[in-house]
């Protein structure tokens, strides 16, 4: 059974179509990257798959649960790291993770917190009020809340934003290791080199439509993911658009 399966998933806001007939299947153990320009529908896709938004049309299955019918079951089973989300300002990382543990009804929360603080390097700031943490430190706490319950599937919107290069490398290793153990990771990112290095499959969305799907390891030796991405997202004859290097920190819905 695929970890994620969607059929004709569509989301409209009045006259605006944020997502149009998205059909995809992500097998278990896959590190799937959803790529696309700003406003192409990546975040909307994640929000529908995790039961935060209802689709206008179509259906989805996440680890066997229907996110429309039973969103809590989906969110119990998965981890979610939204883009640009900080831990609550006036809680410490320890308190926030305790709160997440309470909501998720986890056992051995203190041990889990200690383990993730050690792994992501925030042991020294565990009891510091979050408003006094740096952006990178906050991102580490958010990564910890994503994985603390050891979910089988994780949705991540821009995982490496604000992290220093060493921590970026460690998080990449962790994500690879996580999928090697049979878990599934659904990644949304603008950082093409991250997708190129990590993903076992990528889907490219443009204007709410899935326009391409492929394994980046199957690219021709002289072809980069950026070239492929450009071909798929840019209208014929258009020039420019995606800057050389392909990695941007911009965000969009």
């Amino acid at each position: 059974m695929p970890a994620i399966e969607t059929e004709d998933l569509t989301k409209r806001y009045g006259d605006v179509t944020a997502l149009s007939s998205l059909s995809l299947s992500v097998p278990e153990g896959e590190l799937f990257g959803l790529l696309g320009p700003n406003g192409s529908g990546k975040t909307t896709t994640i929000e529908i798959l995790t039961g935060q938004l209802d689709p206008t049309e179509g259906s989805a299955s996440v680890l066997g649960h229907d996110p429309v019918v039973d969103p809590l079951a989906v969110r119990e089973a998965v981890g979610i790291l939204p883009e640009r989300e900080d831990p609550p300002s006036f809680l410490t990382p320890r308190e926030y993770l305790q709160f997440v543990g309470d909501v998720r009804d986890l056992s051995g929360v203190d041990d889990r917190i200690a383990e993730w603080a050690d792994r992501l390097g925030f042991v020294d700031t565990l009891d510091t009020i979050s408003t006094d943490l740096s952006e990178g430190e906050r991102q580490r706490v958010m990564l910890a809340q994503t994985f603390i319950h050891e979910p089988d599937l994780v949705f991540i919107d821009e995982p490496l934003v604000n992290l220093d290069p060493i921590m970026q490398a460690e998080v990449k290793d962790h994500m690879r290791d996580y999928c090697d153990r049979g878990n599934t990771l659904f990644l949304s990112t603008h950082f093409l080199e991250v997708a190129e290095q990590l993903c076992t499959s990528v889907g490219i969305v443009r204007d709410g439509e899935l326009v391409a799907e492929r394994d980046p390891r199957d690219l021709d030796p002289d072809e980069q993911l950026l070239d492929y991405f450009r071909r798929e997202v840019e209208p014929e004859g258009a020039t420019g658009g995606i800057p050389a290097g392909g990695a941007t920190g911009e965000s969009g819905r």
């Binding site: 410490t92 308190e95 510091t128 009020i129 408003t131 006094d132």
Partner: peptide, 16 residues
């Protein structure tokens, strides 16, 4: 000024 304010580790549990 941001002062790295800290909290007792067991505060959450005590309040809860």
């Amino acid at each position: 000024e941001s002062g790295g304010a800290r909290s007792a580790p067991q505060r959450y549990e005590r309040v809860r």
